[in-house]
Amino acid sequence: MHPFAYVAPKTVSEAVSVLAEHGDRARPLAGGTDLLVKARANVWDLDAVVDVKNIPELMSLSINGAGLSIGAGVPCCQVYEHKDIQEQYPGIIDGASIIGGIQIQSRAGLGGNLCNAAPSGDGIPALIAYSAVAKISGPNGNREVAVEDFATGPSRTVLENGELLTSIEIPKPAANSGAAYTRFIPRNEMDIAVAGVGVFVQLDSEGKKFESARIALASVGPTPILAQKAGDSLAGKPVNDESIASAASLAKDAASPITDMRGTVDQRKHLVEVLTGRMLNQAIERARG
């Protein structure tokens, strides 16, 4: 591991200036559960890590009429222990509560999950399904990017030199909506998704018809994927096995996985179909309350 300096700025602008100064020789440190593993494995040679956990803005977690705002440094445990999030954003909980084990969840956050940009990031599909937006600060000011556009490839994001994710904003779900995320792993915990599916459904007031839906996939492409067609196909459709099965089959088509030690192309596509069906049913159940 290349020896690096530890910097703990207290403001976003300080953090931005350190990051800008070092270019790709410095990285933000949130929970460190990806960063420190990669630094130790010599994936990166860093001169500095910039701990974001002393920046109050990045540690705030707030929920109000407009939606949920998760600071980029907030660990998963704070998210899934939050009563209001449990009630209003069960899909977010599904993702946040399965990243690593308890020790990892004390540190790892959704911000780090997003910035790490692994195709398998378990936090990301639900964020996409909820239409979440990433807020970014950098040397040239602030900007917002839809979560589905945030990752541009494995371990690559839209972040430019000196830019920092500050928070993830999730709009308040309308009435009669529901969301869910699951993944397939060979073990029951502490594992990387072979395939993951997050869905968000908006039903009519009787819970009999889909008004809209968003389906997002993990581990079946170079980045987490928004399966737009699959979600759109449900708009206006009755809530029944047939609609669900056809959306699941479209989700399978949207998957473009590779074969590796964690699974084969066939297995992963098959899993996307199975899990999409299961998550749609779960989200429907939640939407109906």
Partner: peptide, 11 residues
């Protein structure tokens, strides 16, 4: 609880 191998002493 945390894995102390993935925390920096400085933190």
């Amino acid at each position: 609880i945390v894995d102390s191998c993935l925390v920096l002493g400085a933190e």
